[in-house]
Design a protein around this nucleic acid. Structure first.
Lengths: 198, 198
DNA sequence: GGGTTTACGATGCACTCGCATGGTAAAAGC
DNA sequence: GCTTTTACCATGCGAGTGCATCGTAAACCC
């Protein structure tokens, strides 16, 4: 069996176990032993693939960002051409909301990573990439809608793209704490889109 | 010296030391020993005022929310009557931004508490109070501005109040990560107020 | 088919953690 | 003035931590 193990796959297995655990109680709270147990392997195996806990966390961080990005981009790609920009943005924002157990977990993990990135800025680079790219994409989408006459001239596509990215994130906090319902969050999104597209 | 110590004051002393530490590395990362050292007292003293770490964290949570609330309400109270609703809201939103070292720390602490509140919903009640109250106040402010004709009829004061509370919070994340400047965040706020008050 | 490399598993080590215990000195109460 | 209560401080304990070390079995290389 040795020698033929797929390193990348093994590291993903570990990262997924870590993410499962990190969603409750933060990132530092999970121990190597916990991760190993969750992944169904020994602690020695974990050490074999990651020399240090720090390294393991960094990899999991990359993996989580990549997964979230793929999920969102997949959602963007699946829409047929005939739907309106507004529909696309609405779907995107709803996808970004922490509604399902999975996305709630992802949201909590992203917060844990956020803390870590603030404390250790050199780690932040990993996930600094994705959001600006998404924001840029939305900006372009809005610009096209604006020239097509769906938006008034006075809105600033870049600023609105900013808001569109930020709003689901901010709403998710309320969802997690339980003082906002999914319907309420969706209504807030619809209201904002109403104001944007008149 | 014994018997005449002010319990509340002592607990505040400890809470402030805890908050100073919690801003880097989360809430669970700080140990009783760390807090005691930061507060300049012995660990036994900390134990004397808080039977358990959990209790200490809960008190610090209350204290932090109270302080943040007082700070924001003080900012709201200090404005003379002659300034416009827009100016009031602008000042409020800027105050909520994590710009100074202090407010950055406060923001990080609030995130740590957020995680904790999600994991232990019974603790969330403490700081579930303040934000709805602020949101309600803003809603009223907007409603008055609307009847005074400063706002168009088609905006929903409650929804806009939601956004006004959420936006600084979301912008602060970018500030903390370093991919947004203070000027940029302020510009985003001004843009949003521009769109609201036309 | 012997030697090297890979992939672990088991164990131990130094350290830190929250918390319990026991002591002590000083003020308060009578 | 003696007792009780308050406000600590010092110490220790058991559990858990990341990490290092050692052993070992299987696969690849020649």
């Amino acid at each position: 069996m040795p020698k033929k193990v797929d390193h990348a796959q093994r590291r993903v297995l570990i990262a997924e176990a870590l993410l499962r655990l990190a969603s409750t109680g933060g990132l530092e709270a999970v121990s190597l032993r916990d991760v190993a147990a969750e992944a169904g392997i020994s602690m020695g195996a974990v050490q074999h693939y990651f020399a240090t806990k720090e390294e393991m966390l960094a990899h999991a961080m990359d993996y989580a960002v990549q997964r979230a990005g793929e999920r969102i981009e997949a959602r963007l790609a699946e829409n047929p051409e005939q739907v309106t920009t507004r529909d696309v943005l609405r779907a995107l924002m709803l996808e970004m909301l922490a509604t399902t157990d999975d996305s709630r977990r992802e949201f909590l993990v992203s917060i844990a990573f956020f803390q870590r990135a603030v404390a250790a800025p050199e780690l932040a680079a990993h996930y600094r990439e994705f959001w600006p790219r998404l924001e840029k994409w939305i900006t372009e989408e809005l610009r096209e809608a604006q020239t097509a006459g769906e938006l008034t001239e006075e809105v600033d596509p870049a600023r609105e793209a900013e808001l569109i990215v930020l709003l689901p994130d901010a709403l998710s906090q309320g969802l997690l704490l339980g003082h906002r319902t999914e319907q309420d969050a969706a209504a807030a999104i619809d209201y904002h889109l109403d104001q944007l597209f008149d």
